[in-house]
Every structure is written in C-alpha cells, then in structure tokens.
Design a protein around this nucleic acid. Structure first.
Length: 896
RNA sequence: GGGCGAUUAACUCAGCGGGAGAGUGCCUCCCUUACAAGGAGGAAGUCGGGGGUUCAAAUCCCUCAUCGCCCACCA
C-alpha cells in the first residue's frame, strides 16, 4: 500500500481516477432484456457554444449525485450526454468569425456558411464535455448526442411532418417578435421584458371634417415613430367623450393618410387620453383591432429596423432617428401637446439583448392548446412531479394560458423547415420526410422553405430522440421514460414544458420523466446574475483548480437547499476543501493504524463508543438516503459533514486511540491485541460505509481512499462507483439509543472539564482529578466502565464518582450530564471571575426554570399537549431545578 | 396588474409547531505522533414590524415594510 501524503492533493488524484473510470466502462449501461426499471437521466444539453458556468456546475453535480447513488444501488443506470446546436448562439459565433475576416454570411452563401458552423462545432463543441469530465460527472461518454445528428434530424422532421399533417403546424402572417440584430423572429418566451424609463407623447390628430365644435382628437403613444403606420384611431364604445366622433375621419399628420376612428372594447378609457393610435403592423393589440375593423396593416419597418418606404420621407432612418424626427416634426407642426414621463416594458432579444420589434411577417406556428391539455393532466395527476412543488403552479399558469408557438427562424444554422412549395402550380405546400424536387401535381420543380426551426423545437425531443426515436429501439423501450430531469428555472417554459407535451404526444402518451428538479439559481456575492461579459461570473474551472472538484461539488451541495437561490462567494468552498482534506487525513489515520496482516471483519461492539458510532452511522445512512431521494441535497451534505467531522473524527477516532495504541505495544496482552483488532475493524467498517455515502457528492477523494481500504471479499468492488449503496434498513440493526445517551453524558463531562481547563489555563498534559456526584447509580457504573475515555479526552487522571460524593475544598463545580463535577483547583481559583460566571449561569438557569414551571402550571398545556412533550418538560424541570440548586449552593460558597 | 420567493449571530445561510443552529469571521490557548486546510474553549441573535390562531409560534394565518424574481396586450 502506497504511502498517503499528509495533505489531500486533488490534482494528483482526479485525473488518473477519471481515466480509470472511463477505462473501466462504469459510465456505460446497455439495455438489459429483463429486470428492474433502469434509472435514466438525460442531461440538459449544453450549447455547443457554451463553456461551464456555475449553473452547469450546480446542475451537473445534482445529476451526478442522483445518478451515482442510483448506480450504487445496483439499478441499471444511464446518464445520457450530448450538446445542443444552439441556432442563434452558434450562428452568431460563426458570423463573428467571418466578420473578423471582413465577411458577412451572405458573402459566402448558405451552404458554405452551414459548413463553417459544422467546422466550428467540431473545433469547439466538446469543450464543455471535457469540463464535465473534470467535474467527475458520470455521464455515458461513449454515446454522445448532438441535436443535429442525422437520426436526430429525422426525429425533428418526423415531428414537424406529423404536426403539420394533423393541422397543428400552420403558416400565417402574424405579429411576431423580431430581433433586428439577429435578423430573425423569436417566440414570445424568447423575449425578455425590461422596464425602461421613457415618455408618453401626446399628439393632436386633426379631423378631416370637424364634428360639432371638435376638430381633432388627442392620442398618446410610447412609440411616436409608429405613427407612420397608423391606420385608425380607436376609442372605447362607451366613452361619452368620443361617442360623436366614432366613424369620423382623421388626417394622419406628417403622412396625410385619411384613417377612420373606430370603437373597440380593447381601449381603456382611463389610460392616457382614452384614444389610441392604431399601428396594426407593429403591435399585437393594434393588429387585433385592425382585424376586427378591417383596417389596413402597413409595415413601416424593414428587417434591420430602419424605416421602410412606406414611411415616406422617413424611409431609411433608424427606428430611433425616426422617433426623434417624428417628435420634432410634430412639435414644429404644433401637434405635440405634451410629454409625460412613463415607465414601460421593452422587449429584448434573449440572445443579444437588442430591443425587439413587434413585426408583421409570415411565420410558422404550432397550435399549442391541444398539446397542452394532456401535459397539464400529467402534472396534475402526479405522473410528473416538480421539486420544489410550487413550480407546478407556475407551470399550470403558463400552460393554461399558452399561446401559439412561433417556430420559424430566419437563420441558416438549424433544422430547415421540411416544407416544399411548387412555384409552377397551385399545389398546396407539402411537409415531407424526404427531400422533394418534383411537384406531384404538375411536375414542376419544388422549392424548400428557407427558414429553420427554433432550436427549442429540436430540444423538446431530447429525452426520446437521444434514445433513437423515431426508430423503435431497444434503448427507447428500456430507458424511456427517464427518471429525473434537473434544470434551471429559466427554461421551464422554453424546454421542460415542451418536452412534456411532445413526449406525451409522440411516445405512447408517456411522460418524458418522473421528477423535475428546479434547482436554485447561482448568483454572485452581490446577489446579481453572473455574467461573463460583465465580469461578474465565477469560473467553475478556477474553483476546481483551487478547491478540487470534490470541494466545489460539496460546497455547492451544502448550499443547495431547494428554495433559496445561492449567493455564491468563493470563501464558502474553503470548508468543503478542508472537509476533503479531513476525510483524507482521518482515512490516513485509520490506514496507518492497521497491521500488515490485518484481516477485515464485521464490526464488533465491545465498547459503548462502538455501539454509539454504529448507531450514529445507521442514522446517517438513513438520513442521506432519504435526503438524496427527496432531492434535499443541502440536508444530505450537512448530515455527512456533521457525522464525519464532529462525530467520527472529533470523538470516535479520538476514543479509538487508547485501544489502538495499547494493543500495538510490544508488551500488549492478548486482550489488548484483541481490542486493537476490534477497533481497527470498526474504524474500517465505519469509514467504508461513510465513504460510500459520501461518494455521490465527493467522488474522487472517496474513490482514492476506498480503493486502499482492506475489505472483506464480499464488500469489495472494482470501484467505489459500483460498490453497494449502504442499505439503511440493513444498518438499522446498529441502532442503540441507550449507547447514544451514555456517550452524550460522557462527552458532556469531558467538555465541562475542558472548559474548566481552558478557563484556568491548565496545560493539556497536566492531569486532573475530579470528583463526581450523581443521583444515579447507573452514572457511576458508566463512568467506571468508560474511565479510559475520560482520561484520554479530558485528561482526567483519576476520579471518584458516587451518589454521596463530597465536594473537595478549593474546587470548582460544573454541572454536566445531570451530574455535578468538582474540579479541585487549589490556589488557582479566581473567586471574583467564578462568582460572575456562576451568577450568570444561575440567572440563565433560573429563568429557564421559571419558563418551564410556568408551562407546567398551565392547565391548558397539561390538558392538550402530547404526553411525551409533557414528560419532556417535567424532566427538564427536574434537571433545571437541580442545576439551579447546585449553582445557588456554589454561589453561596463563593460568597462566603 | 397578477403571482412567487426572501427577511434568523458581524457576513453567508440551515431550521419551518414543543429547549435558537452551522460555516466563515472574531477572542483565548495549543505545532498533543491523522489533519495548523488542524485541535480545545469562548463571545456573539427581543429569528423584519404589527396583529391573529394555538396550551405552545422563528416555524401556521392576516397585514405592513424592504429586497429579489417570474408572468401580463394597457397605448
């Protein structure tokens, strides 16, 4: 067995271990003919343009934890891996690359551009995969998917054609969100709204012919430039102020177009002037008003958001120049009546943050309502469960108000829409699985739609397309539905909801996953979104460099509490890195104290400490198992940390030293040697189980150590990855409440004595004698039996314990474990300080006692509280009364 | 305009009906043969304000305040 260095060095350990896992084929899982339902996770495919950020680090740690636990339980397990072609993001990257060579994509043409995208992907696409490996993620690397793989393309096409043929996909001229920079349509949920300080401009629109005394109407707008496309003015039908001018004609200033005044329920009479200028080509509501009243729809913007020829002399100006000029011209014409400050929501492109324009254009849509209904049911009846549960309400709210999905994008990189048009005859457009060249009606040549599909259209098929769908593969049969989907909340609608809809629709009505984990969002220390461009991000790779992959993972798990977002500060990883080192050193201690011919064996309870630690271990196993399976990672991490550090290291290892060292002496008796062996076996056993429980969160350090543990043949495995997950039910045999109580009593005494030592600066090596008085004979027996521990941990040389023990002169009294402990301090006692301290303790104890007494005097409490609660209060009262009496006696004595 | 979340020790956060917890930081002591990335001890909180329910509230309900997020067609 090779020597373990004094400090854990993640760098030296992680790479070879990962290589060994990869070589060992532990990440792969083939479909089995029979047996238990497998555990499957489909990774949220990172964008090929992406590199690992903190959100990925958290999300993939979560997935790896559930996957590793499942694998250790023996369940066939597969974590499906792959990347997303990320239409806009990748196209942007490649366009930037071209721009650096002074080229636009139009210069090289569609085919060459798409070729460049593939090249880009080949070069950069696996960056993030390498980063997942560095984290230790146990994905199936042998089977990496890409959303543009040929079989995936077939899946996308199948879905399109199917929905098209069922009438769920249609083409229409609608108001969509247009990003002038990306030069493509976006779906509603790809637009981020941001409240901006702006203005409400009031314009006077003259009537063509005065109606009575009225010769104009005043409208208010947040977007003055859109007036170039106004085709009517709307007022509310019940609005008395305008009743007489409904039907009249307005002459649109600057343009001179004659437009009608219409009455429409949409108008809110209390807002602005109660009269709305209507620009049907640049506003969804205006579009609908125009539909209802048969008004013209004039598009005044071009694709790059400059004014179109329809804007007359404003043509060619940018939208913002046009705004300034329109306002200036209106003012010059004395038609600008006022400008109010006004905050309103402005939509921005979620990819490039350019202000988007509502724009009238021909696009493809999916009719979502029929798909949403079964997907709502699936969550409502619990076939899909969200964690935390409250996200279900967010899901319902969105799904119930779902609107049609604009799926066409004016990009080149992506799944091209498989619809073919005949230019020679009036044949209906055809959606086809095969490329069509010849019109079936007239034999003329066919032309494919120029647009590609929204990237999310392909992402929505991820859980089943990565298992071979639409082919009926053994993988699909075996691994679908997947078990858990873990993701950030910002893609709940973009991705999660759509996977549920398409999964149910295409895979025999089966939901794509049982559980959805919506994990916390990782913010920076200031509580702001991490952003690479703003330099407010933290790079997980740097963190792993400094704290090790395990340190980063465990630090994230400690903070993953489910409800609360994470304000991530790097300092927080320190304790996790230290924890890895603690595990390392505790293990090092155990291994250092094994004999060359150590024979592993079952744990042997020979002392109360053994019974105690095994009982605590059993408790730990059930907690960790429970918390991981209910996705309470923070709880699981804390339980592991507390057990390993505070119970196993601080106490059990310390308690073991006496037996270990005594049994190793040359003159050790046979009994001492036997005790040493028992201690060794217990240490190895506890360490073994603890490492297994820690492994999902800290895979590297646990694997490295575990492989060095000498274990019985049946406990061995070629890797901790596939070692058996501790079974809480099986470990329950170690539960021992009596031992837990006894040990806490002893530990209390040790702490009390240590406190006295610290207070009086008694050197650790200087022995100490104590006298203990207790009411219980069992306490005396316990202390007698476990004296070695008091000696080892409290430096107690000798003690007298009895029910009638007498307090020695010149001694300090502390109360611990329901016993009075007298520590003789001849000549050392600082009476003044002691008085202050005791008085303070007495005050606290008296106040506690009064509180308890009040409770016990309350008839309502006695009548209604649970019996065990009352019992607890009674014993608390007795304890406190005791304590108060002791402290009072002590104080009297000090004051005498 | 709706909805959600947060508010607990100096900081970051657990706890979510029955004795206020952790990590970091701070103070004191200790390089004791697993670990100074460590050990021992300690100080530190009217659990955002106000009501209510309950024998009992940090925990449940209402309300207010502050911060943050999401959804929404009010020009």
């Amino acid at each position: 067995m090779s020597e373990m260095p004094k400090a854990y060095d993640p760098k030296a350990v992680e790479t070879p271990i990962f290589a060994a896992w990869l070589a060992g084929g532990y990440f792969e899982q083939q479909p089995l003919p029979e047996g238990e339902r497998p555990f499957t996770v489909a990774i949220p495919p990172p964008n090929v343009t992406g590199s690992l950020h903190m959100g990925h680090a958290l999300n993939n740690t979560i997935q790896d934890v559930v996957v590793r636990r499942a694998r250790m339980t023996g369940r066939p397990t597969r974590w499906v891996l792959g990347t997303d072609h990320a239409g806009i993001a990748t196209q942007n990257k490649v366009e930037q690359l071209l721009a650096s060579q002074g080229l636009r994509r139009q210069d090289i043409g569609r085919e060459a551009f798409v070729e460049k995208c593939w090249e880009w992907r080949a070069e950069h696409g696996s960056t993030i995969i390498g980063q997942l490996k560095a984290m230790g993620c146990s994905c199936d690397y042998s089977n990496e998917w890409f959303t543009m793989d040929p079989s995936y393309q077939e899946a996308v096409r199948r879905v399109f054609v199917d929905w098209y043929d069922r009438g769920l996909i249609y083409r229409g001229k609608r108001i969509i969100n247009w990003c002038p920079r990306c030069s493509t349509a976006l779906s509603d949920i790809e637009v981020e709204h941001e409240d901006l300080d702006s203005h409400l401009w009031h314009f006077r629109y003259p009537l063509k012919d005065p109606v009575g005394a009225r010769d104009h109407v005043v409208v208010a707008t947040t977007r003055p430039e859109t007036m170039l496309g106004d085709t009517c003015v709307a007022v509310h039908p019940d609005d008395e102020r305008y009743r007489d001018i409904v039907g009249a004609t307005v002459v649109l200033p600057l343009i001179g177009r004659e437009i009608p005044i219409v009455a429409d329920d949409y108008v809110d009479p209390t807002f602005g002037t109660g009269a709305v200028k209507v620009t049907p080509a640049h506003d969804q509501n205006d579009f609908e008003i125009a539909e209802r009243h048969g008004c013209e729809k004039i598009n005044i913007l071009q694709a790059d958001a400059t004014i179109s020829p329809a804007g007359g002399r404003y043509a060619g100006l940018s939208r913002y120049e046009a705004r300034r000029k329109v306002v200036a011209d209106m003012e010059a014409a004395e038609l600008l009546l006022g400008i109010d400050d006004h905050v309103h929501a402005v939509g921005h492109c979620y990819r490039c943050h350019t202000v988007v324009e509502p724009w009238l254009s021909d696009q493809w849509f999916v009719d979502m309502k029929p798909l949403a209904v079964p997907a709502i049911d699936a969550v409502r009846d619990g076939r899909v469960v969200f964690h935390p549960k409250r996200w279900e309400n967010v899901y319902f709210h969105w799904m119930e108000g779902i609107r049609d999905w604009c799926i066409s994008r004016q990009l080149w990189w992506g799944h091209r829409i498989p619809v073919y048009y005949c230019d020679s005859c009036d044949a209906k457009p055809v959606a086809s699985m095969d490329d069509l060249t010849e019109c079936s009606q007239c034999g003329g040549s066919m032309r494919q739609d120029e647009d590609v599909l929204d990237t999310w259209f392909s992402s929505q098929l991820w859980p089943f397309a990565t298992l071979g769908w639409p082919k009926h593969t053994p993988e699909l049969d075996y691994f679908y539905p997947t078990s858990v989907l873990s993701t950030a909340r910002d893609i709940l609608f973009l991705w999660v909801a759509r996977m549920i809809m398409s999964g149910i629709d295409f895979v025999d009505g089966k939901v794509p996953f049982d559980d959805v984990i919506i994990h916390p969002t990782v913010f920076n220390a200031e509580g702001k979104r991490m952003s690479k461009s703003l330099g407010t991000g933290i790079d997980p790779l740097d963190l792993m460099e400094h704290y090790g992959a395990d340190g980063m993972r465990f630090g994230l798990m400690l903070q993953a509490t489910g409800s609360q977002d994470i304000r991530f500060a790097e300092e927080k990883l320190g304790s996790s890195r230290n924890f890895a080192n603690k595990i390392w050193n505790a293990s090092r201690f155990v291994l250092m104290n094994l004999d060359e011919h150590f024979v592993p064996g079952e744990p042997e309870v020979t002392t109360v400490a053994d019974a105690w630690i095994l009982s605590r271990l059993a408790d730990l196993a059930s907690q960790v198992d429970e918390h991981i399976t209910t996705y309470q990672f923070g709880e699981a991490a804390r339980a592991l940390y507390d057990f390993f550090w505070n119970e196993f290291c601080d106490w059990y290892i310390e308690l073991s030293k006496g037996r270990l060292f005594a049994g190793a002496r040359d003159d050790a008796t046979e009994a001492e040697q036997g005790a040493r062996l028992a201690s060794q076996r217990n240490l190895v056993f506890v360490l073994d189980i603890a490492l297994r429980l820690l492994h999902p969160m800290m895979p590297f350090v646990t694997e490295e150590i575990w492989c060095r543990l000498p274990l019985s043949e049946w406990r061995r495995a070629s890797s901790l990855m596939v070692a058996a997950w501790p079974d809480p039910a099986e470990l329950a045999r170690f539960r021992d409440e009596a031992a837990e109580r006894s040990v806490s009593k002893m530990l209390e005494i040790v702490v009390a004595v240590r406190t006295v030592r610290a207070r009086y600066k008694i050197a650790p090596r200087q022995g100490i004698s104590v006298v203990v008085r207790t009411q219980a004979e069992t306490d005396v027996q316990l202390l007698d039996a476990e004296f070695t521990y008091l000696n080892a941990l409290g430096g107690i040389d000798s003690f007298v314990a009895a029910t009638d023990a007498v307090k020695p002169a010149h001694s300090v009294t502390v109360v611990a474990g329901g016993m009075e402990v007298y520590v003789p301090l001849e000549g050392l006692i600082d009476f003044e300080a002691e008085r202050t301290r005791v008085a303070k303790e007495l005050a606290a104890a008296s106040s506690d006692l009064a509180k308890v007494a009040r409770k016990l005097a309350n008839e309502g409490f006695l009548a209604k509280a649970a019996p065990e609660v009352i019992e607890k209060e009674r014993s608390k009262e007795a304890e406190l009364a005791d304590r108060v009496a002791v402290l009072r006696g002590q104080l009297d004595e000090l004051e005498a």
